[in-house]
Design a protein around this nucleic acid. Structure first.
Lengths: 340, 340
DNA sequence: GACTGATTTGTGAACGCTAACAAGAGGCGG
DNA sequence: CCGCCTCTTGTTAGCGTTCACAAATCAGTC
């Protein structure tokens, strides 16, 4: 057990030391540190001076031992290297640190009931005050519901309920915006390259695609499922280049759109002349595809911030709504045009 | 101060409770929990049964109050939504969690001495056992050196020294691989679209470009500086399309290469027929650019894991080398060809 | 069977903080 | 001048662990 350890780090000053220097009791120092009222100006100044002189910082472990709060939020995420989740994480981090919370991260490489459970236990070991979940799979919500963790949970992409708060972008509406735009341009055969249907957002986008088509009296029968990657987009694009039933494609995300673009380009087809394309997410790169991609944009960082805001609300005991929906936006670029 | 709080979470079992149930002292339970030797098989089993029955988990706060270790690693990062840093973070997280450490994250939106200081203080407040730095700016190393934090630090991209461990990919060598490949194909005028020169890696890549050219007796006078973004690549690409002095470009990262690709395409130039292009990083999308991009690949996740390995070594008291260099790899795709 | 050494278990005291309560100081009305 | 309130400060007792040490148990040897 005896780890050699790093450096015999000399003892840090504690309340007692500050108290001694300021000539007050440790409790008074505690009051100053915690910004309690009922401390006279004079003593406050004396204490603050002593704190500055010693470079005192309060010991989180001792504090959380007695308060039973760790001032830490656990962020449970998967696909955290992707543009969306990564930015959501950043949003959470910013809001959390601004509010004086620490952010602990656990990344899942594989999303199963067990890995989720494992990560939650990891967080409970750390005594986090709350958990933000950025795991956009349907399985997540089920797993969380069954878990009854003892701390508040806010899940990105969830609709929210009594047990779990939810903050999400209205994916369905985003998809409808995209498809309606294509319809308005005169397209009648609009295909959909969907994300994996065990992802919350993928399903919602597919639903939006379907509903927009049906509302316009068009058939929603051209759906292919990819895995979000440019590679899967490429494979699908090759097939679509052969079988040219659609004049426009609503693609589940920007990366697959890139792969499709590549496949069409290889097959000698022009976008948007031969096929129109709409992506989803709006990564910064999408504006520089050839041609620049029309997309549905979602603001992931804001999503993360809202998540944390909701978490702070719950932690503060607020009884407000446990659900929040953010609106997406259609960004027109040159990958869409009327069919010829 | 009295936060309403979430839920009066009922008291969790502690060592004492387990001890009572197992009919031993709390210390014996502690020994079992910490896998000390010198506990008889019988008692161990009794204790383990009691632990399972009560669902006991040890209290991190109490533990770290007395051990003065938090089992937490702080990861200080910037640009964490970019492919590279994000994956490095994932590598660190994996290695850390595997080793039983928690990972706390602080993201910098702006890299200055003050924001770095702020984040470091944040971590010290949390009493992290070590800090991994993923902030690829030159300013970082300076700021860290001046700081003399009381905990071990490992910085990605750094060369490592007594105070700060370093793990990095040999950027210079990567650049040389790329440029040598272009030279071998017959290119004589090879330009460089560099990243911002206050980034560690950008400078190293530029150096590599220069040294490879000079080694071949070629002139290294075509350097333009971008800001890593596809947008800046696009702007630079437009200029280069007009002024066609180079037959090949070594580009500082894949995103700028995408922007350049777009600009050349717009100007009616073909890659690789008119201009050859090599990128750096190898994001998954680069294989699906039009044309697929020849790149220097670096394995960011491995980088992160190595970082954490080094950190664990230092924490364990190992005296080994404080520096580690990972090799990059040239991936040939179709964006490079002999000049015509 | 007493003596030694190793192994296993228990006891008490920190670790640094906050919560609850107690005590002292000052003001004011009766 | 006493009693009562308010404002400020101090005292004491945990929070749940681990550490250092002491005590008890068990073999094996003379």
């Amino acid at each position: 057990m005896a780890q050699p350890g790093y450096r015999p780090r000399r003892r840090l000053p504690r309340l007692e030391d500050v108290a001694g220097l300021a000539g007050v009791s440790h409790q008074t120092v505690s009051r100053v540190v915690n910004k309690h009222t009922n401390v006279s100006k004079e003593t406050r100044h004396k204490v603050e001076a002593a704190i500055a002189e010693l470079g005192y910082r309060r010991n989180t472990a001792a504090r959380s031992l007695v308060t039973r709060r760790s001032q830490t939020i656990g962020v449970l995420g998967s696909e955290l290297s992707q543009y969306g989740p990564a930015n959501t994480l950043l949003g959470v981090e910013r809001a959390a640190r601004d509010a004086g919370y620490f952010v602990s991260v656990a990344a899942l490489r594989e999303v199963t009931r067990d890995t989720i459970l494992d990560a939650v236990r990891h967080f409970l070991d750390q005594a986090v005050d709350g958990i933000v979940v950025i795991v956009p799979h349907l399985a997540t919500l089920a797993a969380l519901a069954e878990l009854a963790i003892g701390v508040p949970v806010v899940a990105v992409g969830s609709d929210g309920n009594d047990a779990v708060g939810g903050v999400r972008v209205d994916q369905r509406k985003g998809a409808e915006l995209a498809v309606r735009h294509l319809i308005a341009q005169g397209h009648r055969r609009i295909g959909h390259v969907a994300g994996p249907q065990d992802w919350i957002d993928a399903v919602a986008r597919s639903d939006g695609w379907r509903s927009a088509l049906e509302a316009a009296g068009l058939e929603a029968d051209l759906l292919v499922e990819g895995d979000w990657s440019a590679g899967s987009g490429y494979a699908i694009g090759r097939r679509l280049a052969a079988d040219r039933r659609a004049t426009a494609l609503f693609v589940g995300n920007d990366q697959m759109a890139l792969g499709i673009l590549r496949a069409l380009n290889e097959a000698g087809l022009e976008v948007p002349t031969d096929v129109s394309l709409v992506g989803f997410d709006d990564q910064p790169e999408s504006a520089y595809f050839s041609p620049p991609l029309t997309v549905v944009r979602q603001d992931f960082e804001e999503l993360g911030q809202r998540c944390m805001d909701m978490m702070l609300g719950v932690l503060g005991g607020a009884e407000g709504p446990r659900t929040l929906v953010v609106e997406p936006e259609l960004i027109l670029r040159s990958s869409t045009a009327p069919p010829c």
